[in-house]
Design a protein around this nucleic acid. Structure first.
Length: 127
DNA sequence: GTTGTGACATCGC
DNA sequence: CGCGATGCCACAA
């Protein structure tokens, strides 16, 4: 990535990618969510990480491999950035079962809670 | 050394 | 609820 990077950008990126790979089909995660889920790198202040974490995630997405469904990573507003091909990715998400309302996704329904919450969504305990 | 910007977040209207 | 404006940290010009 061109702008700011953590002490170990590659390692951080791999972590982000690993998390993104864990995102189940039909669910989406936000940059901030992923940033909060990941621990702050050594030597990085928590405040700084909170402020810049999401952008680091974005930077990781910029260089994410093909096997990483970066499309499932969107901003906290539940929308996709204006990066080239966003429309195409939106279509892919729609095929995954994610509903788009006015270019916006219902994070309440499709928001990914993370692995620590529950690997698989249990019936009745969706939230 | 100052200014601008970034695959974001949050507050305000 | 949706959209606009501001702030966050670090780095390039």
């Amino acid at each position: 990535m061109q702008f700011t990077s953590p002490p170990n950008p590659q390692q951080f990126n791999e972590r982000v990618w690993a998390l993104v790979r864990q995102v189940p089909r039909g669910q989406v995660a936000t940059y901030g969510q992923i940033a909060l889920m990941l621990p702050a790198p050594n030597g990085v202040e928590l405040e700084a990480y909170k402020a810049y974490g999401p952008r680091w995630v974005g930077g990781a997405m910029a260089a994410c491999p093909e096997d990483v469904p970066w499309q499932r990573v969107i901003n906290s507003q539940g929308k996709i950035s204006e990066r080239p091909g966003a429309e195409k990715q939106r279509h892919l998400l729609e095929e995954e079962g994610i509903e788009f309302v006015r270019d916006r996704v219902d994070l309440k329904k499709f928001g990914w809670h993370g692995l620590d919450a529950s690997d698989e969504p249990k019936q009745g305990k969706l939230f």
